[in-house]
């Protein structure tokens, strides 16, 4: 295993204004090649943990590091293109699928990078879709298709870590398989340099997609459990 984790959190904690623990001081390192699943009951703090890894919420204590360096201030936006968070409910903007995919390249953090249609087409082909999908209006997409667009929008940025917050919770089996397939494609292409953290309710899914399993209960993260895929 590589010595420097891509992301690491140390003693990161969150409480409500009344002092209730949402996330107990937590330590977690994500190394290249890691495929981590996080399971736990609703309200146990899984999403908070994942959002903290994406630096989306202010924390009361602790530190978030990217390649050994603390992440703060104006380093946060570019950090979020290296560590991309995908919420359970995908959000698309007015326009076509393609305009949604082009959007990130208009941001300062992605300056110098260009939208790559061929790359997108390759992924779409593995899902059995053609170029007409790109010109579909966002209003005409199903929930699952929206999630696929959101996933494409994230992985086209070549993130080092993908944070997936129950992306298939509302999808049927076919679309769930598409999402998993797309994540696998991206992961394989990254040749052990990338990692993923996937929150799921389904133990079956955790077994399919991840090598290591973490449980979260009442804001506390359990020690890692090996979870050999495909066994």
């Amino acid at each position: 295993m590589n010595a420097t984790p891509i992301i690491g959190i140390e003693d990161l904690s969150r409480r409500t204004s009344d002092g209730e623990i949402l996330l107990a001081p937590t330590r977690l390192d994500v190394f290249p090649g890691d495929r981590l699943a996080i399971v736990g009951k609703s309200g146990s703090g899984k999403t908070l943990l994942l959002r903290s890894l994406a630096a989306l919420d202010p924390v009361q204590s602790g530190e978030l590091r990217f390649l050994g360096q603390t992440v703060h201030g104006n380093q946060v936006p570019p950090y979020r293109t290296d560590v991309v968070y995908l919420p359970q409910r995908p959000v698309l903007f007015e326009g076509t699928v393609e305009s949604n995919l082009q959007l990130p390249f208009q941001l300062k953090s992605n300056a110098g990078r260009n939208y790559d249609r061929q790359k997108i087409m390759k992924w779409l082909e593995t899902l059995g879709r053609d170029a007409s999908f790109l010109s579909k209006n966002h209003e005409n997409l199903s929930g699952g298709e929206m999630q696929i667009v959101a996933l494409l929008r994230a992985i086209q940025l070549d993130p080092q870590v993908l944070l997936l917050d129950e992306p298939t919770a509302a999808l049927d089996e076919g679309l769930t398989a598409s999402v998993e397939q797309l994540v696998d494609c991206w992961f394989e292409a990254a040749k052990q340099q990338a990692a993923l953290v996937w929150i799921t309710h389904s133990m079956n899914q955790a077994e399919r997609i991840c090598d290591t399993l973490y449980r979260v209960d009442a804001g506390r993260l359990s020690p890692p459990e090996p979870n050999p895929r495909g066994e």
Partner: peptide
């Protein structure tokens, strides 16, 4: 707004 942030927006 949050989706923009997750994609690297300031």
């Amino acid at each position: 707004i949050e989706t923009m942030l997750t994609l690297g927006a300031t």
